[in-house]
Computed example of a mutant assay.
Amino acid sequence: MNRLQSLALLAALTTLPFTLALAAQEADAPPRAPDAGLSEDAAPEELSVEEAAPAFEIRDGYDVDIEEFQWTHRPVVVFADSPADPRYQEQIDELLQDIPALMTRDVVVFVDTDPKARSALRKKLRPRGFMLVLIGKDGGVKLRKPLPWSVRELSRSIDKMPTRQREIEARRGG
């Protein structure tokens, strides 16, 4: 495992927000010619994790216009009446278990744990207590669940969607 892959793995396991794109960026980059004129003990150019690619993060959903993500992302919205709700905490833990799977499926996660704020998401989706909502790239609500779901369950639901099927075909070159 090279330095960039190690850095990406370390970032994935320890921090939020982070990126996993360093390894992919290196794999996609054309081979570099050795730098002329550098001594053997010269340090190679350092890459910053922040510069690499878009980061996965869990965002506040209080002032979000969900339509901004239409055709580019699949929003997952997690509602709870309090951040201390055990179902909310379990859901966040579940989402953090497999971030690469979420990133591959263009998932962006929003949370709203303040019912008194009456956010636009709450007005549109009308949750009662804890609720997980999956919104498709077309902007339609694809899934509502009153209990936490694993990334595996979410991934399976997303992978059955026609838009996702087309994305998979396009990546295969078909």
Rank of each mutant, 00 (worst) to 15 (best):
L143V: 12
D35P: 02
A43N: 15
E46S: 12
P17V: 13
D112V: 07
V78F: 03
S155L: 07
W71Q: 14
M131C: 10
M1A: 12
S157G: 10
R74H: 11
Q70F: 03
L143D: 07
P115G: 10
P34L: 09
A84L: 09
E90K: 09
L147E: 04
N2C: 04
F18D: 07
A117Y: 14
L134M: 01
L154K: 03
K124W: 07
V64N: 10
A52P: 06
P17S: 08
A29E: 10
D114N: 12
E68V: 04
R164N: 02
Q25L: 08
L9A: 05
L4S: 08
E45V: 12
A52F: 06
L22S: 01
L7P: 01
E51K: 13
A21Q: 11
V141I: 03
S150A: 11
L13H: 13
G129Y: 10
A42N: 04
R164P: 01
A24S: 14
K116A: 13
K124R: 15
L4N: 14
I168Q: 09
D159K: 00
G139F: 06
A117D: 04
P54D: 14
V76K: 06
K137P: 04
D112A: 13
T14W: 10
Y62N: 03
M161C: 05
A12I: 06
P34A: 15
S155K: 13
G173F: 11
T113V: 05
K142M: 01
A53Y: 05
Q97R: 12
L125T: 08
R156G: 08
D63W: 00
F18L: 13
R166Y: 05
A80T: 03
I99P: 01
K145A: 03
V64Y: 08
E40A: 10
A43V: 06
E26F: 07
F79W: 09
R164H: 10
A36I: 12
R171Y: 08
G37P: 02
F130M: 05
I158L: 10
R164F: 06
S119G: 05
Y88G: 02
L16E: 08
D35H: 00
A11E: 15
P44D: 12
L134Y: 11
L7T: 11
D41N: 06
P100R: 03
P127H: 01
I135Y: 11
T15V: 11
P17R: 00
F69C: 07
V49T: 15
G61V: 14
R87D: 00
